[in-house]
Computed example of a mutant assay.
Amino acid sequence: MFKPKEITKVIDNISIGYSAPSNIALIKYWGKYPIQIPANPSISFTLQNCKTETFIEAKKKTKPTNTFDIEVLVDGKIREDFKPKILKFFERVEPYFSFLKTYFFKIKTHNTFPHSSGIASSASGFATLASCLVRLEQLLSENETENLDVQKTSFVARLGSGSATRSLSGPMMLWGKHKNIENSQDEFAIPHTDIADVFKTYQDVILLVDKGQKQVSSSIGHELMQNHPFAKSRFEQAYKNMSALIEILNNGDLDKFISITENEALSLHAMMMSSQPYYILIKPKTLNIIEQVWEFRKSTKIPLSFTLDAGANVHLLFPKSHKERVLEFINTSLIGYCQNEQYICDNIGQGVIPLS
């Protein structure tokens, strides 16, 4: 779909940097086909503050080799344990770039949020790395435009992490073919901008229930959907919920928004708990928070809702107009459930940006 561009310019040394946010899916993607094709469509809010910043320093080799030569630094420290995943990514994307074996790459990356704790760090990480590679190709092919090729970047990012395909632009991105959604694709995500004003400034406060490494990775979780007894019904549910949510996002019906997105969050974890082998990523404090949110919403009529990613942390979603009251509720009733009383205030953002 995206052929490698012809390299017409010689650049011996160059540094390129991008920042990309995480995203929080409202319709959950869980289960996939080779290679990185989603079993059901998904849609997400693009975040603003939970982001990854990545620089690549590319140094041209004296002569091309048959290997990828990379060095990975996380927070300024060399991390050999990150290297295999990046090498696998380079293998997958090699058909779409002609220069990966002609350069030595030093990859420097930093997250503004905890890694592997249910916030999509792989999404923002691979979104930044894909952005750097696509931009480098644009420069080597003497493409004068300053605009990043977002479609190719989304396509490439997907080959590192499925959810990374949704971290390139905002306020929302939609990934996966749906017969009722024009231009929807399995190979890359598309921006979704046809939303009511209330959603354009929506808030997401992430309660850090558990900042540790997940017991079961998302990659393994996706694989377990292949023989899951409820997989077919789950994919049908997600497809139906997507149809309904697209209309809700347009008309701003918050009650229906809450109903569908909370159902999606609980369905995601139900699939984990009913797979073989089964596993549980939510914690007792996760359930405590959910019950408190339900009680708060019932007593105050404030449209506060929750969603969950593949982890124990809880994303609290609400309109900006209720921010002061919700933060008060968090600090008086929920903060005790957070590890070290930590939470992250975030909001809807606009996606990837270049770094100088």
Rank of each mutant, 00 (worst) to 15 (best):
I43M: 09
I43P: 01
I43E: 06
I43F: 04
S44D: 02
S44Y: 05
S44G: 00
S44V: 11
S44F: 10
S44W: 11
F45V: 06
T46L: 09
T46A: 06
T46P: 07
L47I: 04
L47G: 08
L47A: 06
L47F: 03
L47Q: 10
Q48L: 10
Q48G: 02
Q48V: 00
N49T: 10
N49P: 11
N49A: 07
N49R: 03
C50G: 07
K51T: 11
K51F: 12
K51I: 14
K51E: 11
E53H: 08
E53S: 09
T54P: 02
T54F: 03
F55Y: 13
F55R: 03
I56M: 00
I56D: 03
I56R: 00
I56Y: 00
I56N: 00
E57L: 05
E57T: 06
E57M: 01
E57N: 13
E57F: 02
E57K: 09
E57Y: 07
A58P: 07
A58W: 01
A58F: 02
A58D: 05
K59Q: 15
K59W: 05
K60H: 09
K60P: 10
K61C: 05
K61I: 00
K61E: 10
K61H: 10
T62D: 15
K63W: 03
K63V: 00
P64L: 09
T65V: 12
N66G: 15
N66P: 00
T67F: 07
T67N: 13
F68G: 04
F68I: 04
F68V: 02
D69F: 00
D69T: 12
D69C: 04
D69L: 11
D69K: 09
D69P: 01
I70C: 08
I70L: 13
I70N: 11
I70D: 12
E71N: 06
E71S: 11
E71F: 02
V72E: 01
V72I: 13
V72K: 05
L73K: 04
L73G: 05
L73M: 01
L73V: 08
L73S: 02
V74D: 12
V74A: 13
V74P: 12
V74K: 12
D75G: 14
D75P: 03
D75C: 08
D75M: 09
D75R: 12
G76R: 04
G76V: 01
G76N: 05
K77A: 13
K77G: 07
I78C: 12
I78Q: 15
R79L: 04
R79I: 03
R79A: 09
R79Q: 14
E80K: 15
E80M: 12
